[in-house]
């Protein structure tokens, strides 16, 4: 199994009209929160459902915890909260958890302990004996999360886990995900909510139009461009045109008295000291230089645009 709990090699599921997901190769490191990002309809849920054996792959291979995705073993230590979750609404929350414990072959003693733990964990301890049909959407999502955790899984697939929750509920789920990670669990988080992924994920994969665009450590992905914000004075008619080998893009943000603030996109990290030298050589007074960290939205758009540009060029 190595260090990766989920590995796929060109995993493909294509529907009529070539929709679905294509040639997805990913490695999910153990003990991480892995964000699987993409716009609606990008193929995220199709990929997860293929991994879980709910739909058959068209081609490619994949393993979960070292077992091929089509095998029952691959699902033994896996929990899953589907995106469009629906549970038998004639059941009570407790009955639902009991049913899933039976499916996971927990004995009756283990079932009792686990069900109480989980109802406590998702804040439904006093509502466990109510029918699911009487639950609010948020409560249904909580019982869904409890259900996903019944077998004390090593890998947990959460497909849009906070979509029906209010801000407090979202915060609680984020905390729950962090707690699970602390316990060594691997969480595969499917989401189109960038802020959510940005807050809790260590690793991110971006998918668009069924194809994987990029994956990797979030910190590494965030350094796709070196961007700095500088505040300086003392240079008249400041222009970065003469520094085109190190400054790729420049944008004036504001002017306060004699001070000008600029946001600069540099060629590489090494361009920062070169930029400082060039500015001081022009007698500029540098008041501030702040390296900008790109948020996930920037990264997401950067990669999406890059793919679309590449497709545009290829189609010309």
């Amino acid at each position: 199994m190595g260090d990766y709990v989920i590995e796929t090699n060109q995993l493909t599921k294509l529907y009529v009209g070539n929709k679905g997901c294509q040639d997805i190769t990913i490695q999910v490191p153990k003990g991480n929160v892995y964000g699987f990002l993409g716009p609606n309809g990008a193929g995220k849920s199709t990929f997860v459902r293929t991994l879980l054996g709910l739909i058959k792959s068209t081609s490619g291979t994949g393993t979960i915890l070292g077992h091929p995705i089509s095998s029952l073993e691959s699902r033994k230590k896996v929990g899953y909260l589907p995106e469009l979750f629906r549970y038998p609404d004639w059941m009570t929350g407790r009955q639902l958890l009991q049913f899933h414990s039976e499916m996971c072959q927990l004995n009756s003693k283990q079932q009792k302990v686990r069900i109480e733990e989980l109802l406590d964990l998702v804040g439904l301890h006093n509502r466990g004996d109510e029918r699911i049909s009487g639950y609010s959407k948020g409560m249904q999502q909580r019982i869904g999360i409890a259900c996903a955790l019944v077998s004390d899984p090593e890998v947990i697939f959460l497909d849009e886990p906070t979509s029906a929750l209010d801000p407090i509920g979202r915060k609680e789920v984020r905390e729950l995900i962090r707690d699970l990670q602390m316990k060594g669990k691997t969480i595969f988080l499917n989401s189109h909510l960038l802020s959510e992924v940005e807050t809790i994920c260590n690793h991110v994969a971006i998918i668009n139009k069924g194809r994987l665009i990029v994956q990797g450590d979030w910190r590494e992905l965030s350094s796709i461009e070196t961007q700095v914000e500088i505040t300086l004075s003392g240079i008249e008619n400041l222009s970065f045109g003469s520094m085109s080998e190190m400054v790729l893009d420049s944008e004036k943000i504001r002017t306060e008295k004699s001070k000008e603030s600029w946001r600069l996109t540099l060629k590489e990290e090494e361009s920062i000291p070169e930029l400082i030298s060039a500015l001081t050589a022009q007698q500029g007074k540098l008041y501030q230089l702040v390296r900008q960290t790109q948020n996930l939205e920037d990264i997401f758009m950067y990669w999406i645009n890059r793919q679309e540009e590449a497709e545009h060029v290829a189609n010309r």
């Binding site: 459902r49 879980l52 054996g53 709910l54 029952l72 073993e73 699902r75 033994k76 896996v78 899953y80 909260l81 589907p82 469009l84 979750f85 629906r86 549970y87 038998p88 899933h100 499916m103 996971c104 072959q105 869904g144 259900c147 996903a148 077998s151 697939f157």
Partner: peptide
């Protein structure tokens, strides 16, 4: 049709 089957079939059951 209702997708209620998804959580069940994601369990180790053939």
């Amino acid at each position: 049709e209702s997708r209620q089957i998804d959580p069940m079939m994601a369990r180790p059951i053939s």
